[in-house]
Write a protein that binds this DNA or RNA. Structure first.
Length: 853
RNA sequence: GGACGAUUAGCUCAGUUGGUUAGAGUGCUACGUUGACAUCGUAGAGGUCACAGGUUCGAGUCCUGUAUUGUCCACCA
């Protein structure tokens, strides 16, 4: 027997270990159809947050559903080394211990990083366990493990040989705090206050000057030209002349270039090829020198004269002072502009000329765009609109900077000797070859995740079996970083999409709708929620409180109400179990079932059908709503109450059957409590998680019984309304005045009426008691109050009459509309006609009553 | 500047391929300790579905525009 109250702490104890030790999480049953999801590998930098809890809950729901439904379901776990993020955390920890990380030997540092990884990996596994995730740990992978590193090398070498990876000097985004290159996706633009400094660039041997505005005056030391638009009437005669670079007093040419927009500012722009991507292009077109003026750590270098060694922002301040003094500053204009920050260190990113490795994206992206045109082979997004994001990124794509000046990651498989470059698994034969010091962008390895985890580049059995994956689940914020890249690498190396479907969810927000972030301090730790309300409540909340692709507000009140729902389920189960003491399960015999037994079986059957349909479409919010309604309203409020009036072995069997089916359908959402209850029921197998998912059963269609019980419910409800309105408690009697062919509704269900309404059924009433009639299309029921005078309520009759009349006229109007009759579906019209007829009957009865009064 | 969302009950959100009387949770009101559950039960109040047009026999749902709001991208010398 169950405790009186649901206790999530007790219920969740020990179950995960049992499942895992029993091998229920393991895949590989070749007799079944394969189904595969790979987990988006969390970073080994810290704790899982609510977003992870949401993401993984969705996956666990899918995988548990598929497993129960007869698939060989593989959910492959793993983690990401998270290059910059982890290195920053490890460095910070070392600094706290007074160790300067960059003074360490690389190998020594890596040892510390691996220790860190082990510690955090352990934490993450514990959190996965608390979340109840049915991951196949026998196949767990890490992005830096041997197999995945081989895959990374293989891809790098092959893309290099195809000419799709190259090394070159380009303007990249430089993070001066972490001192590494970044890809464009790792730069976050923020609106900030800044200034436009309008400077005088005097024209050579002239008193005239060009007015040039800049937000970054300190880059002036790297100016090697100024540009005007070639057709700009104001300036075109100046092209070919020189200007004097302020402060430096160096001559630089005026060039004509389309990059200069005559409409913007003064139409003259300074050109700093080493510190601006557009200027870099201009420099290429005009063969300009590239002068670097900033050091990797963000200080000014030897090309900046007295400013050498000064931080770039201090330099800006002091330089502006100097310009002012020399009357070279025309004005300072306050503006708000967007400034790039490093996603990880939040340092202001410096566009920087540097030699890096790049992936040539155009051919790879074109292949994605081409493939998305083919319905049979494309990645199908759920909801479909997210495909546009993939397409958009593949259209605007630029070459991907993949080298990072870090230690934590896959070291680039390139070797240098003088001017020679060799790319391969190991150093070429001969003396003097030095391996590239840099590592690859973290996303370079995660891009291979759907197949590298399955053993690729070896053609393993599991690769053949589980690739492409069936569905990938992730948030929309990570489509550009990850989804795009998995798709093009999958197509490039396996000639096939990495996954058939891509289920996209939104972001978790706090109660006020703000993003959860460390800086706001509004993050909620899922482990705290679990301690307070249980994993099952958290999971059900996460899975059912938003539509696919929409954001989700975390609301503790809703988790609490989910807890209440579980408690309701718990108590309903308790009721069922109480009645199953000394009971031997008997087979359900359709002949012996009561109408209410048939009613609930029919309802259950319909719920199974609709739940399956929405599970297939990942519409878990709908599934949740349907199950909630069925359990609370149909099962608890009605069927359990009805069953109390007729508790025979058949009814007990039905209670048990319905409960088991409910538990099974809830299990993917609430693994723990469903297991707890299930195992206490008679005739069960070792675990609900390996039981069969409910199926629609044609035998359980009982249309006429459903109609009859629906009418019983209608009568009872209407009487309850009167009871409440008149506040008559249970002090009344009931007389069955239904039409002859409907009298059985009450006569056959005497006990139901007496118990649910707490009244007594009588054949006739004596005159002294006040009576009230309640009218249905199929007759009426008389309530007889005991010892209480109730005035005949003509008013409410009139109200009812009015309502009916307006409804009838609306329907009549509708049904006289030829267009409606001709074009609306037959069933809709028929239903409308039936309702009209019923209302007319009812109206006639009421009219008569009013007339008689 | 471009793209994509959102706008439905006091609050948080659902609403399947258009079907005519729009749902849930929570909050609020009244009544109720009945042997599963007061973390409950029975009932109630509460919405011209942001606005304006259009398509249609019929629009919360489809189209166009507007407003408010959010996210992403681009620009930002």
């Amino acid at each position: 027997m169950l405790e009186k109250k649901y206790n999530h702490l007790e219920v969740e104890k020990g179950k995960y270990e049992k499942w895992n030790n029993s091998g229920y999480f393991e895949s590989g049953d070749l007799s079944k159809k394969p189904f595969c999801i790979v987990i988006p590998p969390p970073n080994v930098t810290g704790k899982l947050h609510l977003g992870h809890a949401w993401d993984t809950t969705l996956q666990d729901i899918i995988i548990r559903y598929k497993r129960m439904d007869g698939y060989d379901a593989l959910w492959l776990p793993g983690m990401d080394h998270a290059g910059i993020a982890t290195q920053a955390r490890v460095d910070a920890k070392l600094r706290e211990q007074g160790i300067m990380p960059r003074d360490m030997d690389r190998e020594e540092w890596l040892k510390c990083a691996w220790d860190w990884k082990e510690e955090y990996a352990k934490n993450i596994r514990e959190q996965w366990a608390k979340l109840g995730l049915s991951l196949d740990y026998t196949k767990e992978r890490f992005t830096l493990d041997k197999g995945l590193s081989d895959a990374v090398n293989h891809v790098f070498i092959e893309l290099y040989n195809k000419g799709l990876i190259y090394r070159g000097e380009r303007i990249i985004n430089w993070d001066p705090a972490q001192m590494t290159a970044l890809s464009n996706e790792e730069v976050i633009h923020k609106e900030e206050n800044g200034a436009f400094y309008h400077l005088k660039y005097y024209i050579e041997s002239s008193d005239e000057y060009l007015e040039i505005a800049t937000t970054r005056p300190e880059t002036m030391f790297g100016d090697t030209a100024v540009a005007v638009h070639p057709t700009d009437e104001r300036y075109k005669d100046l092209i070919g002349k020189n200007v004097i670079l302020p402060v430096v007093n160096k001559l630089i040419p005026i060039v004509g270039d389309e990059h200069a927009d005559p409409e913007f500012g003064t139409g003259v722009v300074k050109i700093t090829p080493a510190h601006d991507p557009n200027d870099f292009e201009v420099g290429n077109r005009h063969n300009l020198e590239r002068v670097i003026v900033i050091n990797p750590d963000g200080t000014m270098n030897e090309n900046t004269g007295v400013y050498n060694g000064l931080d770039r922002f201090d330099c800006r301040e002091k330089l502006v002072e100097e310009l002012k003094e020399k009357d070279l500053l025309i004005k300072t204009e306050e503006i708000i502009h967007s400034v790039g920050h490093s996603e990880r260190s939040d340092a202001i990113v410096e566009p920087y000329l540097s030699k890096q490795w790049f992936v040539k994206m155009r051919p790879l992206a074109d292949r994605v765009l081409e493939n998305q045109k083919n319905k049979e082979t494309k990645v199908n997004f759920v909801p479909p609109r997210f495909e546009k994001i993939l397409n958009h990124w593949m259209e605007i794509t630029y070459d991907w900077c993949i080298s990072r000046q870090l230690w934590w990651g896959h070291r680039i498989p390139a070797w240098y000797k003088d001017d020679e470059i060799y790319v391969g698994d190991s150093a070429p034969i001969g003396e003097g070859w030095v391996q590239d010091n840099d590592v690859l962008d973290t996303w370079f390895s995660s891009a291979l995740w759907p197949f590298s985890t399955l053993g690729w580049p070896e053609n393993t059995e599991i690769l053949k079996r589980y690739y492409p994956n069936d569905v990938l689940v992730t948030g929309y914020d990570i489509i550009p970083f990850w989804v795009c890249r998995m798709v093009f690498q999958g197509l490039e190396f396996l000639d096939e999409r990495p996954f058939k479907e891509c289920l996209i969810h939104g972001l978790i927000r706090d109660k006020e709708g703000r993003k959860m972030s460390k800086s706001l301090g509004n993050g909620v730790d899922p482990m705290d929620v679990i301690d307070n309300y249980g994993t099952d409540a958290l999971r059900f909340f996460l899975a059912t409180n938003s539509a696919p692709g929409q954001d989700l507000r975390y609301d503790e009140e809703k988790v609490k109400s989910t807890w209440n729902f579980i408690n309701k389920l718990w108590n309903a189960s308790r009721f069922v179990m109480m009645n199953l003491e000394d009971y031997e399960e008997t087979e359900i015999n359709l002949e012996e079932l009561s109408s209410s037994d048939k009613w609930i079986l029919d309802k259950l059957n319909k719920v199974i059908k609709v739940v399956r349909r929405h599970m297939e479409k990942y519409e878990f919010n709908v599934v949740g709503q349907k199950l909630y309604g069925f359990i609370w309203n149909d099962f608890c409020d009605w069927y359990i109450e009805l069953s109390k009036t007729n508790m025979n072995d058949q009814t007990k069997s039905v209670l048990l059957l319905v409960l088991k089916n409910i538990l099974k359908m809830l299990h993917p959402f609430m693994p723990y409590v469903t297991e707890e209850i299930y195992l206490k029921l008679p005739n069960t197998i070792a675990s609900i998680m390996i039981s069969d998912y409910p199926q629609y059963n044609k035998e359980y269609e009982f249309t006429s019984d459903v109609n009859n019980i629906n009418k019983v419910i209608e009568i009872i409800t209407k009487i309850r309304i009167i009871k409440n309105e008149k506040n008559i408690g249970s002090n009344f009697m009931l007389v069955n005045k239904l039409n002859e062919n409907h009298k059985f509704l009450i006569n056959d269900n005497r006990v139901i009426f007496e118990k649910l309404l707490k009244c007594s059924l009588v054949d006739e009433i004596d005159n002294e008691k006040t009576t009230e009639e309640i009218t249905f299309t199929y007759g009426e029921v008389i309530i007889a109050y005991i010892g209480k005078e109730v005035e005949e309520d003509i008013e409410s009759l009139k109200q009812e009459q009015e309502k009916l009349m307006s409804s009838i006229s609306r329907r009549q109007k509708l049904l006289s509309n030829i267009g409606y009759i001709n074009r609306a579906p037959e069933k809709i019209v028929k239903d409308e006609k039936n309702k009209l007829e019923e209302e007319i009957i009812l109206l006639n009865i009421i009219n008569e009553k009013i007339a008689n009064n």
